[in-house]
Design a protein around this nucleic acid. Structure first.
Ligand SMILES: [Mn+2]
Ligand SMILES: [Mn+2]
Ligand SMILES: [Zn+2]
Ligand SMILES: [Zn+2]
Lengths: 148, 148
DNA sequence: CCGCAAATGCAACCCTGTTGCAAACAGGTT
DNA sequence: AACCTGTTTGCAACAGGGTTGCATTTGCGG
């Protein structure tokens, strides 16, 4: 009787035809717990707090690359030009509405009341994704806007 | 009789209530000659080639900041996460419609028929810009889609 | 022409992301 | 179970874009 714990993340990795490794499992776990897209450094921090201790910076970059490449995660840019990562299942929940990108702190806020339109494209073009990105300064950063 | 050459860039700066300085005039000149958004290093290069010689890297960053802040230029991110700067007059021509970003060739196509909505934001948030980015595969690339 | 705040230039620094390479490992083969 | 091989990990060093501190210069209003 093999004690195969039915780890859903391991199953996802196997289904995606990539090796099941400790770092990948850890990153996948954090990503799927997250409600918003996380930067590399946010992930690094959350991973460091876990009982398993820190995960090498470069390894994290490479794990994220592999997850994006096999389709288990998505990579986007925030308003500061920093990459953010989110699990594909989370991504699906955000495809239908607009997002606010704070140009000061890089934070992203859902604008559920702004729905994305259907793409209206020239012949021959096909859309995979439509993003509405509103850029500006969020409520938390507004007070600091005057500051030097 | 003061020999005031009617420099349009100087006038723009005065109208924007910022000091008229040599670096700002130089940058404004390059930006308004450009047809597309330029990165910091592209600007640096073009400036270095001019008879006036190189402009300090940091000064260029600060000049660009001041032009953006006073509304004479706009800052956007390219697909690599690098800032690009363009004069406001060029930007204005593209602010009202969506853009298609081909995921295969990287090309950008204006979707004039898709107009950007007015931002609908929570209290405290302020928008500077709304972008609709449609991602997919363009007509030229569609036939090649099967290729590895 | 003065005075002062704003802008410049230079050096040093920070942060995000990448590359090279040796050691460790996953997962299939014997 | 031991073995093999390509993948992945970890560490160090690097690269590029962008920022900060500070002394010096300059625009410009008085
Ligand atoms: Mn959302
Ligand atoms: Mn356009
Ligand atoms: Zn913010
Ligand atoms: Zn294309």
């Amino acid at each position: 009787m093999p004690e195969i714990s039915p780890d859903p993340f391991a199953a996802q990795l196997r289904a995606a035809a990539v090796k099941v490794t400790r770092p990948r499992l850890r990153v996948l776990a954090v990503l799927s717990r997250a409600t918003a897209a996380l930067t590399h450094s946010e992930l690094e921090e959350q991973l460091a707090d876990s009982p398993q201790g820190i995960l090498d910076r470069v390894t994290l970059y490479r794990v994220l690359d592999s997850l994006v490449e096999c389709g288990l995660a998505q990579r986007t840019l925030d308003a500061r030009g920093v990459y953010r990562f989110l699990s594909s299942s989370v991504q699906a929940r955000h495809a239908a509405h607009a997002h606010f990108h704070c140009q000061r702190c890089g934070g992203i806020t859902c604008l559920e009341q702004m729905e994305v339109p259907v793409a209206d494209l020239p012949a021959g073009y096909s859309a995979r994704q439509v993003d509405i990105e509103v850029r500006g300064v969020c409520a938390a950063c507004a007070p600091l806007s005057g500051a030097a």
